[in-house]
């Protein structure tokens, strides 16, 4: 019994992963997470209805399991960007942002469903808010470091600027990235590069070609 209990968190993550694939397919077919029945979900995943309730209390609980996973993925995807330093060039920024969008894309559709569900799931709303706060703090730290070291516009308010940029990125990643083909991802990366370069680095005298 105790062995089984110890294996449960792993098994829960495993089942959640399998269900993520099934939900991805259903969302791509035009279903919404809100209207999706557990019956339909488990059918698509080839699992029994009772399996769902062995690991999750409801669809919101499943979203919460994915949410933890997705925020790790986002943090990893954003790491190359916030690691940029004094020698930042526009080309480096473009490469880091192209990678961010590309790495995030496999998670985008399900994470978009998570953010949509926050409007009627208070627990999920609290959780995603905490995730967004963590992203905002990371980015605000990046802005502060750049301001201290002289490679980011010193006039910007770090926390508020980071907050607008985080929500901007959240929205575009979730609205436009799930269905984007490779050329579209390139265009989105170009658009975001133009914006972030001009907002953060260019006013501090960084030139596009800086080594």
């Amino acid at each position: 019994m105790s062995d089984q209990a110890a294996q449960r968190p792993d098994r829960r993550a495993e089942v959640a992963e399998r269900l993520r694939g099934a939900v991805e397919r259903l969302l791509r077919e035009g279903e919404t997470y809100a209207s999706l029945s557990i019956e339909r979900l488990m059918n698509e995943a080839g699992l029994s209805r009772s399996t769902f309730y062995a690991y999750f209390t409801d669809k919101g609980d499943l979203l919460r399991q994915w949410s933890t996973h997705a925020s790790d993925a986002t943090r990893a995807a954003a790491a190359a960007w916030v690691a940029l330093g004094p020698d930042v060039s526009r080309q480096q920024l473009r490469a880091a942002l192209r990678r961010l969008i590309g790495d995030y894309q496999p998670h985008a559709r399900v994470t978009a469903a998570i953010y949509d569900a926050t409007v009627y799931d208070a627990a999920l709303a609290t959780e995603t808010r905490a995730v967004m706060d963590a992203h905002r703090r990371h980015l605000a730290d990046h802005v502060r470091r750049g301001q201290d070291e002289g490679w980011i516009d010193p006039a910007l308010l770090p926390d508020e600027t980071a907050a607008w940029i985080c929500w901007m990125t959240e929205r575009v990643l979730h609205q436009l990235v799930p269905d984007a083909d490779a050329p579209t991802v390139d265009e989105l990366a170009d658009g975001l590069t133009g914006i972030l370069w001009n907002v953060l680095y260019a006013p501090a005298g960084r030139t596009p070609a800086a080594a």
Binding site: D153, L157, E160
Partner: peptide
């Protein structure tokens, strides 16, 4: 912050 972003 929003004004600074759009302005920049």
């Amino acid at each position: 912050a929003m004004t600074d972003i759009v302005w920049n």
